[in-house]
Amino acid sequence: MNIPSIQTDPVITKLLDKVPADMRGSFSDAQLLALKVALGGRAWGAHAVDARWTLKWWRWQYYFVFLAGRNKRVLSLRERKLQRLSMAIVLAVFLLVSTAVGLLVLYLVKSALGIDLIPGFSLGVWGWFQSEFLR
């Protein structure tokens, strides 16, 4: 059974490309394996969205990076709490919008059927809907 050398690993190859040429051969396989573990074995540039641009303003240059993709990391406690909070906010907004749209549809159906729950009172939505969409 032939075990491939750590030197052929894509992560290690990219890492060694950034090291000066005279130092590349000085790492043992154990050291390279420890470096790979320390770096988390991540692949550079493996994002679904990878947008990078530079803005030059007078004497300075600023760079901007927008990365997006599937998160494969283990989240910390703080990140998990933030994730739960953001998911709760998204769910609350979704339920609020869904409820508002549902009530609007029920109101329009009620008005189309001619049902008058409070005699002499109207929100004006049915009149607007008729003038805009049912000409």
Rank of each mutant, 00 (worst) to 15 (best):
A112I: 04
G102Q: 12
D50K: 09
S131W: 01
V37R: 09
W44S: 08
Q31R: 15
E132Q: 03
A100N: 02
R80F: 03
H47Q: 02
P20E: 02
F27I: 06
P20T: 08
I12V: 15
T54G: 00
G41N: 06
D17C: 04
K110A: 03
I6G: 08
Y62Q: 13
S98D: 06
V74W: 01
L95P: 01
S98R: 05
A48N: 05
V125T: 07
F64G: 04
L95T: 09
Q31T: 09
Y63M: 13
L91C: 13
V74K: 08
G114I: 09
I6V: 14
G120S: 15
I115W: 12
L108C: 02
N2L: 10
L103G: 03
L103V: 06
F121E: 11
R73P: 00
L32R: 02
F121I: 12
P119K: 12
R73E: 14
I118Q: 12
L103T: 03
L106D: 06
L82M: 09
L67Q: 14
M87E: 14
I115P: 08
L32W: 04
V101T: 03
A88H: 09
D116C: 05
K36T: 11
S26V: 05
D9S: 03
A34V: 07
L33G: 12
G40A: 05
N2W: 09
